[in-house]
Amino acid sequence: MEWTGACYADKPTVEVTTWIAAAPTQVWTLVSDIELMPRISSELQSVEWLDGGSGPALGARFVGRSKHDALGEWATTSHIVEYEPPRTLSWAVEDPQHPTALWRFTLESQNGGTLLREWMQMGPARSGLSFAIDRMPDKEQKIVFVRMREFEANMAFTLEEIKKLAFSLGGMGSATTNFYNNAYSRQGWAEVAAEVRTRWQAGDRDDAANLITDEMVLATTLIGTEDMVRERLRVWRDVGVDTVRFYPAGESLDARLATLGRAINLVRDIEDEAAQ
Rank of each mutant, 00 (worst) to 15 (best):
E2R: 14
W3S: 00
G5K: 01
C7R: 15
T13A: 04
V14I: 11
V14K: 08
E15T: 15
T17Y: 01
W19T: 12
W19L: 07
A21I: 01
A21Q: 05
P24L: 12
V27N: 04
V31Y: 05
S32F: 03
S32Y: 04
S32N: 09
D33G: 12
E35M: 10
M37C: 02
M37Q: 15
S41W: 07
L44V: 10
L44Q: 15
V47F: 12
E48D: 13
G53P: 00
G53S: 15
S54C: 10
G55A: 12
R61Q: 12
F62D: 08
V63N: 14
G64F: 06
G64I: 08
S66E: 06
D69P: 12
G72S: 11
E73M: 05
W74P: 13
T76E: 07
T77G: 01
H79F: 01
V81T: 15
V81L: 06
E84L: 13
L89Y: 05
W91M: 00
P96Q: 11
Q97M: 05
Q97P: 01
P99M: 03
A101G: 13
L102E: 02
L102R: 15
F105S: 02
F105P: 10
F105E: 02
E108N: 08
N111M: 04
T114Y: 00
L115D: 02
E118G: 06
W119R: 09
W119L: 04
W119M: 05
G123I: 07
P124S: 13
S127D: 09
L129Q: 06
S130Q: 11
F131K: 14
I133R: 13
D134E: 12
R135T: 03
R135C: 03
M136T: 10
E140T: 10
Q141I: 05
I143A: 06
I143L: 15
V144Q: 07
V144G: 10
F145A: 10
V146I: 06
A153Y: 09
M155Q: 11
A156P: 01
A156H: 13
A156I: 03
E160S: 15
E161K: 09
I162E: 00
S168E: 08
L169P: 11
G171W: 01
G171L: 02
S174G: 08
A175T: 06
T176E: 11
N178G: 15
N181E: 07
N181L: 02
Y184S: 06
R186M: 12
Q187W: 05
W189A: 14
W189N: 14
W189R: 15
E191Y: 07
V192I: 13
T198E: 11
R199Q: 02
Q201N: 00
D207Y: 05
L211V: 01
I212G: 03
V217Q: 06
L218P: 02
T220P: 04
T221L: 08
T221N: 11
I223R: 12
D227C: 04
D227G: 08
M228V: 08
R232T: 12
L233D: 05
R234N: 11
V235D: 05
R237T: 02
V244G: 09
F246L: 15
A249P: 01
L253V: 13
A255K: 14
L260A: 14
G261W: 03
